[in-house]
Design a protein around this nucleic acid. Structure first.
Lengths: 159, 159
DNA sequence: CGGGAGACCGTATAAATATGCATGGCTTTG
DNA sequence: CAAAGCCATGCATATTTATACGGTCTCCCG
């Protein structure tokens, strides 16, 4: 019969503790590292808050208003979501077409953010953007091009 | 031209600020609320860390080692418990078959967690489980049944 | 053996985050 | 218009989290 002669440290082992942490956190909301420490103590595991701080990072658990949660899935995203659509609703106050130019007005200070969002959307129509404080100037090749872009932007606003 | 003299001199509006926060956070890693405060200041937005603490919660942004991230996506998950596969790798030390019984050995204190994971997997072969401190006893109907279950579990370990 | 490297962890403390309380502006009522 | 209710904040401070440092243990290697 297979004997698993594992180099099991005298100590319960970090691996084991990590498993317990995941287990605790999955079952009940844990609001702080100190609370987690107490729950682990109930399970016969005595560690300090400092250790838990390190463990939580290794396990990629993040603190949320509803307790610690797995962050793995979250790690890479976040960029894709708040793009143009949100920025438009947040900042766009007015649209003014002018031949091959499109002028977007925003509340004071909003231009930079809106321009960044427009850029990141990578519309083929956009030749370039310039942002002041409350105004974004979008430059397109021709009047037709501008009309196309304007439609797209206005469409974003409604949906 | 639009003159914003009185409308909102000191207060640019929470909505607007929220937009700025999302924008900042989406573009570059922000390690602390104080850093965020400084970045907003560059954008002409002056608020205190206290306000940002509240904002971040409202925006469902959580702190990760790589900066603040959108938590919305993360919120609902973590429900699908740490599946069997993980629990096995975390806790399983040895498997011992015995006729229609399967004995799983874990590090001290790991049995409860492992048993819970096995239960949640809802294997049809499992008639019931009993967990001690470092031992899980799984009961199946017959020897054949146990063999089937054992294969499944061992398969989980390799992949 | 005698280091030396590295992992792990506790202690103490620094850093960061959350929050109780008070203020000022707005809106709603009477 | 005054009074009352709400919000959004700032300030000061409590609470929570991260980390610098040092000690212990284990495994190697000469």
């Amino acid at each position: 019969m297979a004997l698993h002669i594992l180099p099991m440290p005298i100590n319960a082992g970090k691996k084991f503790r990590h498993g317990q942490i995941l287990n605790v956190v999955a079952n009940e909301p844990v609001a702080s590292q100190d609370e987690l420490r107490r729950r682990l103590a109930q399970r016969k595991l005595r560690v300090t808050q400092a250790t838990l701080s390190r463990d939580l990072q290794e396990l990629k658990l993040v603190k949320t208003p509803e307790g610690y949660k797995q962050a793995a899935a979250l790690a890479e995203e976040s960029a894709p979501l708040p793009p143009l659509s949100h920025a438009l609703r947040e900042f766009l106050v007015d649209i003014r077409p002018a031949e091959n130019l499109l002028v977007l007005k925003t509340p004071p200070g909003g231009a930079q953010a809106l321009a960044a969002a427009v850029d990141s959307a990578k519309f083929p129509e956009v030749a370039g953007t310039i942002a002041g404080d409350d105004t974004v100037l979008i430059i397109t090749a021709k009047r037709k091009t501008r009309e196309s872009l304007q439609k797209k932007i206005e469409a974003q606003m409604t949906k």
